[in-house]
């Protein structure tokens, strides 16, 4: 199933929370919709899946146009909401079985799929624990598990990994990647941790204040907005006056150095000449540093470059 949203807008009262956003969900690919809190990510997902009607714009499914997602195709979607919606009084096994029965999945297929999901999402240790007693990480895993028992063609994951430990997060991310690559599902995910999503996403939309700021594959975005590398100088002084003073020294030689906490970041094209230049500035001005490194710009760096603000302030 190939889903496209065209010029989707959503107004609440007079406030436009999504403003003419177009999104193309390539089959078999992982698409990320990224942006800060309140950007409109969940609203876009809800419009694409028929949970809310767009104020204007269209949803196109396999070249057919609809004013909102048609309900008869809904069981082909897997929707993992941002909130945890699980059957609290059932254990993990029962959660999966009950949800499967809601989708009227034949018994054999049901047993097979459930076994696979349990194995892939490593749910075995807590299989008999009531959902309401599960830890946050397991609840998230279960929230995902019951969203996909019916083997949907397109999977929507609204912030799959907030507030969970690194181990669970990695597990979920790897699993999401596997869903798209091995099982050939289309996956759409949202996140306000841009760096987390960029590792697994094939195509990225960055949203801010309901508007699309940029889109493309991660490498396209980097070559378009963040050509080169980021040179980071970590200062070991901490008065604001000193920090600003040292930043000015770099500003004489480089374009737009940014200061965040104790780190000065500079976007550079040629690493070796610029690294030398930076070291000279440090030596000649006796600037106290504790670390210096070069890294590829991340999507969060690009977000800062495009909007002049941090994703999470």
């Amino acid at each position: 199933m190939h889903i496209k949203g065209q010029n989707l807008s959503k107004k609440y009262k007079s406030k436009k929370v999504v403003d003419s956003v177009s999104i193309n969900l390539e089959p078999g690919k992982i698409t990320a919709i990224l942006g800060p809190n309140g950007a409109g990510k969940s609203t876009i997902i809800k419009m694409l899946t028929g949970q809310i009607k767009p104020s204007s714009g269209e949803v196109e499914i396999d070249k057919e146009k609809y004013s909102s997602f048609p309900s008869h195709l809904r069981s082909k979607l897997g929707i993992m909401p941002q909130e945890i919606v699980i059957w609290e009084d059932l254990n993990i096994q029962e959660n999966l079985e009950y949800t499967a029965s809601l989708y009227k999945i034949p018994k054999e297929q049901k047993t097979k799929t459930i076994e696979k999901i349990i194995k892939d999402l490593k749910l075995i240790p807590e299989i008999k624990t009531l959902a309401k007693n599960l830890s946050g990480g397991y609840q998230r895993r279960l929230n995902l598990a019951i969203s996909i028992v019916h083997e949907p063609e397109v999977i929507f994951l609204d912030e799959p990994t907030p507030g969970i430990d690194a181990q669970s997060r990695i597990l979920l991310m790897e699993y999401i990647e596997k869903l798209a690559t091995q099982d050939n599902h289309s996956v759409v995910l949202t996140d306000h941790y841009l760096d987390q999503a960029e590792k697994i996403s094939d195509y990225v939309y960055i949203i801010d204040n309901g508007k699309m700021i940029t889109q493309g594959t991660v490498s396209e975005l980097k070559s378009k907005h963040g050509q080169g590398n980021i040179l980071q100088i970590h200062l070991s002084c901490n008065t604001q006056k000193d920090l600003e003073k040292y930043k000015k020294k770099f500003a004489k030689e480089f374009d737009n150095p940014t200061l965040h906490k104790q780190t000065i970041s500079i976007l550079v094209d040629n690493i070796s000449t610029n690294l030398n230049k930076a070291i000279k500035i440090i030596e000649s001005n006796n600037i106290p540093i504790y670390n210096l490194n070069v890294k590829e710009p991340t999507l969060e760096d690009i977000f800062i470059l495009l909007t002049g603000k941090e994703v999470r302030e």
Binding site: Q51, P81, E83
Partner: peptide, 13 residues
Amino acid sequence: EKKQVLRYANSKI
């Protein structure tokens, strides 16, 4: 209230 309607409305029940 618990948004279970999301699960029900998306399924075939």
